[in-house]
Design a protein around this nucleic acid. Structure first.
Length: 491
RNA sequence: GCGGGCGUAGCUUAAUGGUAAAGCCCCAGCCUUCCAAGCUGGUUAUGCGGGUUCGAUUCCCGCCGCCCGCUCCA
């Protein structure tokens, strides 16, 4: 099976077929931002819908949510993003190489423990003494500049009046919107633990470096589920969602040999996480090939408890006039188990703060994986046939509708069929040129079926339905075309 | 941000200090009764800006963007 070798080929395919363009291209582009074209936007929406179908629609224990991107700044104080979502970086003044402070080793080869997501002030004080640290690039000792912090959240101003605006942040993850609505969902939907809340949407991170086309960008779309469960049952739910999410990628066509789990080592875990596993795909770029598609984490009760602290800190917010850097989160109450974000189990009469299992997927990088995995080239009668073997549910266009030739009443019949089918799913009408050419064009767009009206149609009202992968055709009565396709499409 | 590589039609490539060439694609028409057929015609390019020059796509500078590595992460 032929395979795309390089990322360049994928980029070229995406542009040629209208999947993905460089953002603001006519102005020279904007780094790491991309636009989805006609086929890409359909594909992306289908992926989002497929996720929603399996994570929300088909389950009894998950409900949906769609939060605003801008949220109260205190959300990010409580979540830790406002203080901690930053890396401390220093520059070697001898060779100009940038290094993360926590990655530097001293002359004895010892390095600091992993300080990611540790409070910024703590990290700064710990990092004061760089005099014995060695530059990994040139070997110079103690030649480092004052460490700089990089705020990884995008900031903007809310309020039109310049005198009276507030700094707000573009969310760096969709998860917090779910946590802050935990109470609302509990009070309005009669859900009972265990249950989950899911949402998809854009998130923004000022990454130091972006990478590999749409794989890591500063603006990206997430599909996140926060599944709330009773402490003690968290490990089995973690396992459940691990299997569930892995299977989802297989269901929608990712080949098994290109997918794997990678467990996070203990020292790699964020401080609030009890366990974390990545689902990785073998991408045709980068040094390691295997790259993360989705992370599944056991976040314990950390987030809800943090927001209980946040709520208690609101007086400070007003007193310090919204200056997050001057606000310190209040310690949580002794009886935090009875706090506003706790859950009361009617059956066992217990009150507790639930644990959270979080499967967090990147829609854009999933799309890239589906695209790469579906791409195929094969030889047909000495000609190369390019095709995208998308799962029918993901395919941007479900069926091409053609008259075999542009005469003898065939276009009229085909057009009527087209008008009927487009009410149910995405179809494409084409009558130009040879039919073989039209078939091949649809192959390259990943369209799973083509319906052709031919000379026999006027005699017995049957048409041919041609399958993308096998190129085989079956005759189906005009009245049955819709049902035939609906069944095959697994919509 | 740093280091390395790169930037000519939609794509893949050519060429040049003096009218930027081709194949594929695309569009229109003719012809076509099942897998990129043929004929005719047509659209489209030197990433942006500055400098040197009579003249710059070519030489120089700056910027922008892309790829690889460091780093980071959904």
């Amino acid at each position: 099976m032929a395979k795309l070798a390089k990322l360049d080929d994928i980029v070229s395919l995406c542009k040629r077929r209208g999947f993905i363009y460089q953002s603001s291209e006519i102005y020279g582009g904007l780094a790491s931002c991309y636009d989805y074209g006609p086929l890409g936007s359909e594909l992306k929406r289908n992926i989002r819908n497929a996720w929603w179908k399996h994570v929300v629609q088909m389950r009894d224990d998950v409900v949906g949510l769609d939060c605003s991107i801008l949220m109260h700044p205190m959300v990010w104080k409580a979540s830790g993003h406002a203080d901690k979502f930053a890396d401390l970086v220093t520059v070697c003044q001898k060779c100009g190489t940038r290094s993360r402070v926590d990655h530097l080793a001293d002359a004895q080869g010892r390095s600091e423990e992993h300080t990611e997501h540790i409070d910024l002030e703590t990290a700064e004080s710990k990092a004061q003494d760089l005099s014995r640290k060695v530059c990994p690039a040139c070997g110079a000792v103690g030649q480092f500049s004052q460490p700089m912090a990089f705020r990884l959240m995008f900031e903007t101003r809310m309020g039109a009046n310049i005198e009276d605006t507030m700094t707000v942040f573009l969310r760096p993850e969709t998860a917090q919107g779910i946590f802050v609505n935990f109470r609302n969902v509990l009070d309005s939907t009669r859900v009972k633990i265990p249950f989950g809340i899911a949402q998809t949407g854009k998130s923004f991170r000022n990454e130091v470096t972006t990478k590999a086309f749409i794989f890591r960008t500063r603006e990206f779309e997430q599909a996140e589920l926060e599944f709330f469960c009773k402490p003690g049952t968290d490990e089995e739910w973690f396992e459940h969602w691990k299997q569930e999410r892995f299977q989802w990628y297989l269901t929608y066509g990712i080949r098994k040999e290109n997918l794997r789990f990678r467990e996070h080592a203990k020292d790699e875990l964020a401080h609030y996480a009890k366990a974390c596993v990545d689902i990785e795909y073998k991408f045709p770029f980068g040094s390691g090939d295997w790259q993360e598609l989705e992370g599944i984490a056991n976040r314990t009760d950390y987030d809800l408890r943090q927001h209980q602290r946040g709520i208690r800190t609101m007086n400070d917010w007003y007193e310090k006039k919204g200056d997050l850097s001057k606000i310190t989160l209040k310690e949580e109450a002794e009886d935090y188990q009875k706090g506003p974000l706790a859950y009361f189990d009617e059956e066992t009469r217990e009150r507790y703060v639930p644990y959270v299992i979080e499967p967090s997927a990147g829609i854009d990088r999933s799309l890239l994986a589906f695209l790469v995995d579906a791409y195929d080239e094969e030889q047909v009668r000495g000609e190369q046939r390019n095709l995208l073997r998308f799962h029918p549910a993901l395919a941007p266009v479900k069926a091409g509708i053609f008259p075999l030739v542009k005469k003898d009443g065939m276009p009229e019949i085909a057009m009527n069929l087209y008008r009927d089918l487009k009410k149910y799913f995405a179809v494409f009408y084409d009558e130009k040129g040879a039919v073989g050419r039209r078939y091949r064009r649809q192959d390259e767009a990943g369209t799973p079926f083509c319906v052709t009206v031919d000379g026999q149609t006027k005699e017995d009202s049957t048409v041919t339905i041609r399958h993308r992968d096998s190129m085989e055709q079956v005759r189906v009565h005009l009245d049955q075309v819709k049902n035939y396709l609906l069944e095959k499409l697994e919509l």
